[in-house]
């Protein structure tokens, strides 16, 4: 059926996704309610995120800047949104510690968001006047032109800490290896599964996949933010149960149960 003729108001093949989305929303609101009632939300220690404080402290002692790379995604990518929220935490700490922050931007829209987040973080830390114009600046929307600029900065300015958070692609190893040459402590987090091995090998700490999305909540330790992580975990448990049920049902000769998970 071509879309011009399609007058249906609902795609029945996506009912399972709609149920999943509604379930997720229920988990979200239940956990937010729990958080508001004061329930304690435990989040396991994530070495890479704990190391951010150490990295910022190191940069302050050495008098060298912190380089924060928000990834090469645009605003439609969730990794970029995560990078912006993490930057606001990192910028607040650099403002409090008084060390320099450098944030080269790839996507022009994301760069304006990053600057706004960083500036606000400095204001909230009471150091609005020490926010240097040009801290967050657009470089290039071409992958390797961006890499050339950033690696040049790394080799010239020798930042003490490199924090890579966001969506990275083929340039990930380039950035991490160059940072390694300069002796910086490197913490990376990306939602691009194909780049995880490169960061794991070349960086001191790596956040794997969803740990990037949990980073903002982890760093802020705000109850509502932690509640969303709890909701995520509940959804993951539900997904695991569905997978196991489907596998068992298929093994027992009922593949139609597993096919309920398929979508159109």
């Amino acid at each position: 059926m071509t879309p011009e003729l399609d007058t249906r108001l609902f795609e029945p093949g996506r009912l399972n996704l709609l149920i999943g989305l509604v379930l997720f929303l229920i988990f979200l609101f239940v956990n937010i309610a729990r958080a508001k009632r004061g329930a304690s939300m435990f989040i396991r220690p994530i070495a890479g995120l704990a190391a951010i404080e150490e990295a910022l402290g190191r940069a302050t002692e050495m008098g060298r800047p912190v380089l924060y790379l928000p990834g090469l995604g645009d605003m439609s990518e969730v990794g970029t949104l995560a990078a912006i929220t993490i930057l606001s935490r990192v910028a607040r700490r650099t403002a409090e510690l008084g060390c320099d922050l450098e944030v080269p931007g790839y996507d022009p829209v994301a760069t304006t968001m990053l600057e706004s987040a960083a500036r606000e973080a400095y204001v909230q830390a009471g150091r609005g006047d020490s926010f240097r114009p040009g801290t967050v600046h657009y470089v290039s929307a071409q992958q390797f032109a961006y890499v050339a600029a950033v690696t040049g900065y790394m080799l010239r300015e020798r930042p003490a800490a490199n924090i890579f958070m966001g969506s990275f692609y083929a340039e990930s190893l380039f950035l991490a290896e160059t940072g390694n040459v300069t002796g910086a402590i490197q913490i990376a987090g990306t939602d691009q599964v194909t780049q995880l091995p490169f960061f794991v090998c070349a960086c001191d700490y790596a956040l794997l996949g969803e740990e990037l999305y949990a980073a903002s909540a982890y760093l802020g330790q705000e109850p509502i933010q932690l509640a969303t992580i709890a909701a995520q975990d509940w959804a993951k448990a539900a997904a695991a149960i569905i997978v196991v049920v489907g596998v068992i049902a298929t093994a027992l000769g009922h593949p139609e149960v597993g096919r309920l998970r398929q979508t159109q």
């Binding site: 997720f24 969730v78 969803e210 999305y213 969303t228 909701a231 997904a239």
Partner: peptide
């Protein structure tokens, strides 16, 4: 990652 992305987007 998918669930994390949904959570962040929501």
């Amino acid at each position: 990652i998918g669930l994390g992305a949904v959570s962040t987007a929501l």
